[in-house]
Amino acid sequence: MSWLAVLVLVLVVVQIIAALFSVWQKDLLLAALGTSAISVVLSVLFYLLQAPDVALTEAAIGVALSTIIFVIAIKKTDRYEE
């Protein structure tokens, strides 16, 4: 197993954990940050998959814009899930 495969394994595991975290987290702000983490990992994975264009897009949109509109929406509504 090369170090690259190990890296990918770690990234995928981190991604799945982040996804589970954002689904189960009662605090929506943290859930939104979880999606942000997914996007960060996704961006790296895209880079590893030789797709720099997509990685760039995901970095700009998934990490920053998507998260911030979630945060804004949470701010306009409730922060905690009942």
């Binding site: 689904v23 929506l28 996704l42 994975l45 895209f46 995901e58 998934g62 899930e81």
Partner: peptide, 28 residues
């Protein structure tokens, strides 16, 4: 999930997953 925002979060996670699937299918 009963919370609307959570549902939207779920949708965006599905979105990410589909994107990753597409790109990995195209990998050589």
């Amino acid at each position: 999930k009963k919370n609307l925002l959570k549902i939207v979060v779920g949708l965006s996670i599905v979105d990410s997953g589909v994107n990753l699937l597409f790109i990995s299918v195209g990998y050589v």
